[in-house]
Design a protein around this nucleic acid. Structure first.
Length: 646
DNA sequence: GCGGATCAC
DNA sequence: TATGGTGATCCGC
């Protein structure tokens, strides 16, 4: 039984353990649990796919480290750190401790709802979910059973595990009850999933002359009285911190982070970076590769991060280190929605007619959903997962609004046809470039004059269009020019809530998110040359990328010396790669850095390519498997963060 | 606009 | 022993 260790890397073992390792309800011996999971998975197609992804990530990390080493040569680290420190001062100035933000998170939600319906489950290890576990009871978690884990793996970890089917209607109803309670404390409640939400209780505290702790006790008590379910909560000055805090005393507890800069810094210092929303397993590994395990490590490695800004996201990480994030709490707006889709997993099938049947089913399901919720869209994206677990997407845009099953099915067929032969285990359709048919209808009647218009968070216009006499029906055939034309309601602006930016241009970072906020996260991707080169055919081939593309350091005045530098004025800069001093503007500086980087990166890539030969084709039928040239050069990697600015 | 990847619940 | 579904974001073409 100890034989597996030979081929398994630590990273693969950890990856196989699932995305929610390190969550609450820790089990005793994680090592033993991971071994059992790896053992049970070994040899399966799922396992092979995870292995492939793990290897790709390993390569991506290698590229980043090579870039780092190259860039560090001759770099003036002292100067770079000084610049990072300057940025920290600027970010610190943005800190806002004036709002009391609460993150409420239901404890083992699905499992506890099941418990209400069947009290005999109390004290037993059970989990909700069929093939994949949604939620495990705390007793089951002690065995290592976690959400996202396959049911049969969970059974291996806990032979006595009771697996329950999901009852979404139950969860949904109770979920609404919970939110109704929370809204009494903050009508602008921001729902983040069916079992959690953010509140800004600042006004409530003032109106009722309460302290945050007492108020949150009352909130939790109110939820319990209404549902018989416990909820944990975090009290902090912003959403990110509140979310992290809600996990601190879970279950049935609350944690109040002091509203004090130094206390927050202390709190962040030893916090595992993985706890930050947006930093998942991949980003965790990437950051770990440069020595960052905790938020405090961000400061220690600020020079490295500065040099790898493009890959790691300097600004995001510095904000994280400081414990700064958005404190804007606002309900999800319908017009923020960007896509609607449906997908289904089934036992692998290769028969074309059967696959088309599945596609038709999905098209019908999606049409129903779009109809019920009044959405139309212009882009249809087909998604399919091979029996090897590799996922692909193919998209097509239309000049008109799509709403009907026939159109969805036709688009799907057109997109999948060139991919045959195929053996797939999942198929799905998603529609984007949405048009809100409810808004379209509303804009038609007189009532439009009484309803505030909401702008799309991003910036401009909102919908509400004029056309169509008065019915909502089938706009799919309306002339697009007209249908596409939106109209802005006069007199309403919509973007008010911003906090004042102080001197920084960047005001709010993340708030537009429906869920919490941060679309952030680092990581970077490497795309290319995956170890297994198979893939569906058609379309684009691997073209080679050649231009550098990036400039490390995205800020106007990144590392260079001068603190004051407008956007494009000339200034003296030290190239972090070759250490030359250049008098130029930022654009040219970046171009220069790209040049320096590409030289080193290409050289490294060549060395690596020659040292490595085979690209193993994992069977499977992808027609033209490319494999041609692995990477021309590395700049692929990068962590995407949130949209920090702009 | 497209496709791959990551993330969260 | 059968490893989910929905939605979003970001990057690099």
């Amino acid at each position: 039984m100890a034989l597996p260790s030979s081929q398994l890397t630590d990273s693969l073992v950890k990856r196989l353990a699932g995305p929610s390792t390190g969550k609450a309800g820790l089990a005793k011996d994680q090592t033993e649990i991971n071994r059992i999971i790896a053992e049970a998975s070994k040899g399966s197609k799922f396992y092979e796919n995870e292995k492939r992804k793990d290897q790709d990530l390993t390569q991506r990390i290698s590229r980043i480290l090579r870039i780092r080493d190259e860039v560090m040569k001759g770099a003036d680290l002292g100067k770079i750190e000084k610049h990072a420190d300057q940025l920290l001062v600027e970010l610190e100035a943005e800190r806002d401790l004036s709002q009391v933000i609460i993150h409420c998170d239901m404890d083992a939600f699905f499992a506890n709802v099941e418990l209400l319906h069947d009290p005999s489950l109390k004290g037993k290890p059970f989990a909700v979910g069929g093939g994949v576990i949604s939620t495990a009871s705390y007793e089951a978690r002690a065995f290592g059973v976690r959400s996202g884990m396959s049911g049969f793996i969970a059974k291996k970890l806990c032979p006595g595990l009771i697996l329950l089917k999901s009852h979404y209607d139950w969860y949904s109803e109770i979920s609404n009850q919970v939110f109704d309670v929370l809204k009494r404390y903050d009508p602008t409640l921001c729902v983040a999933g069916c079992d959690e939400g953010y509140l800004n209780i600042t006004p409530y505290l003032q109106q009722h002359n309460l302290t945050p702790d007492v108020c949150v006790q009352q909130i939790r008590q109110s939820v319990y009285e209404a549902t018989n379910l416990t909820v944990s909560a975090g009290i902090a000055p912003n959403k990110m911190l509140a979310k992290i805090c809600s996990d601190k005393n879970k279950p049935d507890g609350q944690y109040h982070l002091p509203f004090d800069s130094d206390a927050i810094l202390d709190f962040m210092r030893d916090l595992p970076i993985r706890k930050i929303p947006g930093i998942g397993r991949v980003n965790e590994r990437l950051l770990d590769s440069v020595g960052i395990k905790t938020c405090g490590d961000v400061y220690t490695h600020r020079a490295t991060i500065s040099l790898l800004d493009k890959q790691l996201g300097l600004r995001f990480l510095l904000r994280t280190y400081l414990g700064i994030s958005s404190n804007v709490v606002r309900p999800y707006q319908r017009e923020e929605r960007k896509s609607i889709g449906a997908e289904r997993t089934f036992s692998s099938i290769g028969d074309e007619s059967l696959i088309l049947q599945k596609l038709e089913d999905i098209a019908e399901e999606l049409e129903k959903d779009m109809q019920e919720n009044q959405w139309a869209g212009r882009t249809v994206t087909l998604k399919f997962k091979l029996d090897t677990y590799q996922v692909f997407t193919r998209a097509k845009s239309f000049p008109r609004w799509v709403t009907k099953k026939d159109d969805l099915f036709a688009a799907g067929k057109e997109l999948i046809r060139p991919e045959f032969p195929l053996k797939i285990r999942l198929i799905g359709l998603r529609v984007t470039k949405l048009k809100d048919l409810k808004a379209a209808a509303a804009s038609t009647g007189i009532k439009r004059f009484f309803e505030p218009v909401q702008l799309n968070s991003s910036s401009k216009k909102r919908r509400l269009d004029e056309p169509c006499g008065n019915e909502i029906i089938d706009i799919s055939s309306v002339d697009d020019e007209q249908a596409l034309d939106d109209e802005v309601m006069p007199g309403f602006h919509e973007f008010e809530e911003e906090e004042t930016p102080l001197s920084q241009q960047d005001v709010e970072d993340d708030e537009p998110e429906a869920l919490f906020n941060p679309p952030s996260e680092p990581v970077s991707r490497a795309k290319p040359a995956s170890s297994t080169g198979i893939k569906p055919a058609s379309k684009k081939r691997p073209r080679e990328s050649s231009t550098p593309s990036s400039s490390i350091l995205r800020h106007p005045s990144p590392i260079p010396s001068d603190p004051s530098n407008p956007e494009d004025s000339l200034a003296s800069h030290t190239c972090p790669v070759c250490a030359k001093i250049l008098v130029t503007n930022n654009q040219d500086l970046n171009a220069h850095i790209d040049f320096c980087l590409s030289k080193g990166a290409i050289r490294e890539a060549q060395v690596e390519a020659s040292a490595r030969s085979p690209v193993k084709p994992t069977s499977s039928k992808g027609p033209s498997s490319k494999r041609s040239k692995p990477e021309t050069y590395p700049p692929q990697t990068k962590l995407n963060w949130p949209k920090s600015k702009k």
